[in-house]
Design a protein around this nucleic acid. Structure first.
Lengths: 336, 336
DNA sequence: CTGTTAGCGCTTTCAA
DNA sequence: TTGAAAGCGCTAACAG
């Protein structure tokens, strides 16, 4: 597309290509007047160096990849915003890849990223991912990897997470203190560490308050929307309906609200609902809504900061460092 | 990072670099057995061609840029999803740039994109953008540009929009039919065509039903969150409080809900609210909520399709073609 | 301080 | 059917 290049500037100025190149990088080897001439012409001709030539030569692209399961979700959207903010500050470009919770897509993206297209990757695992060889291969190719939220414990890499266990505990405790005695837990893939930890918080919460753990109260929602919907509907229509629900991710909390409305169940009178969610507007719109919200924007910024620190080799990062940013319990109404 | 290249494959196979290159692109000039040997080794060594070398040589990067004002907004998030879906299908990569509604950032992004980094750009204008020279320059450099939603009428380029005028009219009509006689309109920058059109729908709606147009009922919300909040609060606290509100974008609708709760105003009893919004969950969570939702995902897909059609030069696109996808009025409750 | 030169890894004539 | 060689635009070692 573009066609202004160093050669043209050089010819125009009767200088060599390398001099122009150096002048533009403000090298100390070039005299001030020359630099000025070069700057002026570059500006006048609207010169933009070809990033691919430079990437090829320098073996670094100043580009990172963000791989996430979905984006129509406030958590990931805010995380992207955080990542992009830091990337811009550092002069990096951001490629985005959506896996749609599909492990196959994650694998093919990872394979593609072995090409040297990016200097590093920030990733949140898809719900379906069990085997992580594709990520290990990325690391073997020396592509720095930083996980956030949906991290993989078995891979040595920096991880940015929320205090999932504590949040799960607090959520459960909150429901118990609000009077719930039969609390259901909705969770996604147990292969994800967040699911494990949130659930452990839930079971420990029950234990702490001497409530029985009932396996039927744990609903695994790893399938398509339709069957998730049916499971939740079955739960809420059953004889032994729970009086409290703790949903481990936003989409499940939303489904619960949906089903409750259909069944004519009042939240929080008939059933109290508490879910992980970053839909800031949600709690605004429904006063009955209590959420656990993760600091998505900050997590994105943190993940990016860690990655760039590694890329710029500012200092060595401990291989398996883990940054934990606390989630906030947001109670908007006195009714729950 | 990566280090497997054509040269290595060639040496290993006792072939020339060019033969290997051709074999990998499945060229008809290469014999089947040779191709097979090459494929096998490439697979075994996990070869990934360096995209930057290829971009440099071919003057195309198979990469596009998506430039949007924000992402923590369901409309843009869904649009990205649509764009990414099509891009993947076509084997393109997607760079993302957030302008944060700031024209300065839009300008610097546009300048950067003149470098040949991308083959094309999909863009939605920032709220603040008045002067569009930076976009014209992009076009002069032959970077194909496709607008969506927040389009620029003065630039010749494909545009994907919703039926803003009609939607504005329908929204106003809906409020009138619900009994409103004093309808306020909240709008963002009047430099954006969407604002113009939605407002024209509003004024024409009033006209059609013989309601007076009152300038005080039009609130311009182009500033920071804080002052928008104050304006809306002032509107709703005033003596001559409106009995209906039509908000032209999601964030304004949300602010209205917020203020109503603070002031103890009941929606829809005290004031009926109708806003553009793609927060699908919003209407779920608050039965009183009526929204006009844009087909964001489809708009993203459409914009990408148009761009790729142009990039692949499948056939000529009329310079100023405009695709209009209709928004949907979503009434969730009988109360409004 | 400035110029010459040799690539980065790939594609693509042109020649064999 | 294969190979040799030039070159995309930029950087960096080396020379002057």
């Amino acid at each position: 597309m573009n066609t202004v290049n160093l050669k043209q500037l050089a010819k125009e100025l009767n200088l060599s290509v390398s001099t122009v190149s150096r002048a533009l990088r403000d090298s100390w080897e070039i005299s001030t007047p020359t630099k000025q001439r070069v700057f002026d012409l570059a500006k006048k001709m609207n010169f933009q160096p070809n990033p691919y030539a430079s990437s090829l030569r320098k073996h670094r692209s100043r580009t990172i990849a963000v791989v996430i399961p979905e984006v129509a979700n406030n958590f990931f959207a805010l995380a992207i915003k955080g990542i992009e903010t830091i990337a811009r500050e550092k002069g990096y470009h951001v490629l985005i890849y959506l896996t749609n919770e599909d492990c196959g897509e994650e694998v093919s993206v990872a394979a593609n990223l072995q090409s040297g297209r990016v200097d590093g990757v920030i990733l949140s695992l898809s719900e379906q991912t069990r085997d992580v060889r594709h990520l290990l291969e990325l690391q073997q190719r020396n592509v720095p990897l930083v996980f956030f939220d949906r991290v993989c414990d078995s891979i040595e890499a920096p991880k940015v997470v929320t205090n999932d266990y504590e949040s799960g505990f607090v959520a459960t405790e909150h429901l118990i203190k609000a009077g719930c005695r039969r609390i259901a837990h909705l969770t996604i893939s147990m292969d994800l560490s967040i699911s494990h930890k949130r659930m452990k918080g839930y079971t420990d919460g029950l234990l702490r308050y001497d409530l029985p753990f009932d396996e039927e109260m744990v609903i695994h929602c790893e399938d398509d929307e339709e069957s998730i919907y049916r499971k939740i509907r079955a739960l809420l229509s059953s004889e032994k309906r729970p009086d409290g629900i703790f949903a481990s991710v936003e989409k499940l909390a939303v489904q619960v609200y949906h089903v409750c409305r259909e069944l004519g169940l009042d939240i929080p009178k008939d059933v109290k609902v508490l879910g992980f969610s970053n839909l800031v507007t949600a709690s605004l719109l429904n006063p009955a809504l209590t959420t656990i919200s993760q600091p998505a924007y900050e997590m994105g910024k943190e993940a990016a900061t860690i990655l760039f620190r590694r890329l710029e080799k500012k200092y060595i990062v401990v291989p398996d460092d883990r940054v934990i940013l606390p989630a906030r319990l947001e109670v908007r109404s006195s009714t729950i």
